[in-house]
Write a protein that binds this DNA or RNA. Structure first.
Lengths: 255, 255
DNA sequence: CGGCAAGTTGAGCCAGGTCAACTCCGGTGG
DNA sequence: CCACCGGAGTTGACCTGGCTCAACTTGCCG
């Protein structure tokens, strides 16, 4: 018997995201999943308890920003990864649970998935299996790219890179108006810098006329090619710009 | 009809690794996979060409160390990730191909898997699907942990952390004799440091009596708990050791 | 055994960390 | 509604860990 799609799913962003597991599930599967899952709203700053994750080790992010935080022994805080809409976390293995703790960086909606139903869907629905695989693969490569950003890039470069990361997620229409979905302090922990340095880097990009900080959660990109080159680690771009003024930037950007 | 396991698989480390895809495949599946796959030996320093990866986008590492390298516009080299025995890379999506290029850091054996057969196995063999999923999940979390290492840790801490990463992979018996499978220069690029700093950090750990560098590819851990605490970012551990003088170090080193 | 890349050591310097003071903003209670 | 408060963000001054450059030694491969 075919059941109709659950109302909760019709109201959820993941259902309409064609690259997402939920969009590939049949109505029956969605009903089965929905009946055995748990929707959870998490306020900014709240942490998912170990107890909760023991019962619900598979977490799908439907809106907001979830983070994986580490705390070094002497108190330094690190945000090792960000998870946004459509990301699915499988914390059933020991290694993933040791990684740190999950904290919401903004008000967040989660869907706690039933492991058996999740496995059943992946077994029976090849299209669902493929998008889940692709999603996890994308997470792995995104973590790898982030590691690469942290390895050798300078503060300005890391920030530029992060802005492109955010831009990648915004709608096609307003590609030059980028939303920064997390606070400065968290951004610092994610990029391996101090809040002071984040602040100074934003200011530097603004002084160079590369972008405009509308408010704390929005930036407008003014010189996109220059920002691109900084993000890609072209230190000549930075120095040249600082010395020769804006007209030169445009020439090089064309070439 | 049941076929016997291909000879190539019987000679390959992955076949005997119970947490690996190959160990979960049936003889028939192994035959099918083997008939449509390609074994490839790669010498240290060689790069997998785009052309090759276009034809063979799924790469399994059977021995040696494969790396994902990035090159920043101004020449800075970054090793974004390391892949070792059992790791399977799926480079079929655009995002993964843009990530950088694959280079062997030691003489390496790869198994280039046929995408259709790979998909067939994941569809038909749930146990194989699960280990493949767990493997990819582990890769994602390992990349996340590496990002966390790079974010806020100091040189000594990153090196200590890497030594534990290597130790994790060595046999249970000789846990204090750790093999460093890559060259200093590559280690520097992986940890986001300069070769000089890597060298100085090894020397510092040796001076403090925490480990002994047997040769360029082997270290012996002498003070495991101290190394652990440094890796976990306890800066007090470092300072305390430095103050307490050499006589303590030598006593412990002898034992 | 020669040649060259890899690794090490030393000296100097700078990007970004640290500390302190300040401003800004959102939430709260009178 | 406004005064207050505390945390977040910013700015400035200073300091240091690790980068840079250069010279040297070691180890590897033919």
């Amino acid at each position: 018997m075919t059941q109709s799609t659950p109302k909760a799913c019709l109201l959820c962003g993941m259902y309409y995201d064609t690259r997402n597991l939920c969009a590939k599930m049949t109505s029956d599967e969605l009903c089965e999943m929905n009946a055995n899952s748990q929707v959870l709203k998490v306020k900014r700053g709240k942490i998912l308890s170990d107890d909760l994750l023991d019962h619900w080790p598979i977490v799908a992010v439907s809106s907001g920003v979830l983070s994986l935080k580490h705390l070094l022994s002497d108190g330094r805080r690190v945000i090792a990864a960000l998870f946004m809409r459509g990301d699915i976390l499988d914390l059933r293995t020991a290694s993933s649970r040791k990684a740190g703790y999950l904290a919401a960086l903004s008000n967040t909606s989660l869907c706690l998935l039933s492991p058996p139903v999740f496995d059943t869907v992946l077994t029976n629905n090849p299209r669902a299996r493929i998008v889940a695989w692709e999603g996890l693969n994308a997470q792995a490569f995104s973590a790898i790219n982030h590691a690469s950003d942290l390895a050798k890039k300078q503060a300005l470069e890391k920030l530029a890179s992060f802005i492109f990361e955010c831009r990648h997620r915004t709608s096609k229409k307003q590609r030059n108006l980028v939303e920064i979905p997390i606070r400065r302090r968290d951004l610092a922990d994610y990029l391996g810098m101090q809040p002071e340095t984040v602040s100074r880097s934003f200011k530097e990009l603004e002084t160079q006329g590369i972008l405009k900080v509308t408010d704390l959660s929005t930036v407008q990109i003014l010189l996109l090619p220059v920002l691109r080159r900084i993000a890609d680690g072209d230190r000549v771009a930075q120095i040249a710009d600082r010395d020769s003024g804006p007209q030169f930037k445009i020439v090089v950007a064309d070439g």
